[in-house]
C-alpha cells in the first residue's frame, strides 16, 4: 500500500550529508574571499566582484540546497526567468539614470 501513497513524480535522490558540508565550506570560503577582496581597494571593480561572488553563492544555494539540480527542469526555467526579469528592470532603471539628459 505504501507504494500507492508515493507520489507519481517523486524522484528518488537522497543527497548525502557530505555533499552539503562541502557546499557549506565552499560558501564560507567565498564569503571570506569577498570580505578580503573588498578590503583591498579595487575601485568600481569591488562592486562587480562582490556581486559576482554573491551570484555564485546564490547559484550554489539554488542548485544544491534548494534542489534545483535534481528537480524538474521547469523550476530552473522559472527561477531563471524571474532572476532575468529583476536584472532587466534594474538595468533599464539604471540606464535611465545614467543617460538621462
Amino acid at each position: 500500500m505504501k507504494s500507492m501513497e508515493k507520489t507519481v513524480n517523486e524522484k528518488d535522490h537522497i543527497i548525502p550529508y557530505r555533499k552539503f558540508l562541502h557546499i557549506l565550506i565552499l560558501l564560507i570560503l567565498l564569503t571570506l574571499t569577498s570580505v578580503a577582496l573588498t578590503r583591498i581597494y579595487l575601485g568600481a571593480l569591488t562592486v562587480a566582484l562582490a556581486l559576482i561572488i554573491a551570484a555564485v553563492k546564490s547559484s550554489f544555494v539554488l542548485r544544491i540546497f534548494m534542489h534545483l539540480k535534481f528537480e524538474s527542469r521547469l523550476f530552473t526555467v522559472l527561477v531563471t526567468f524571474v532572476v532575468l526579469l529583476i536584472c532587466a528592470v534594474i538595468t533599464i532603471t539604471l540606464l535611465d539614470y545614467l543617460f538621462r539628459q
Partner: peptide
C-alpha cells in the same frame, strides 16, 4: 547573501 555585500562590503 545579497544584503551583506550591498550594505557591509561595498563602501
Amino acid at each position: 547573501i545579497f544584503l551583506f555585500p550591498l550594505f557591509y562590503l561595498i563602501t
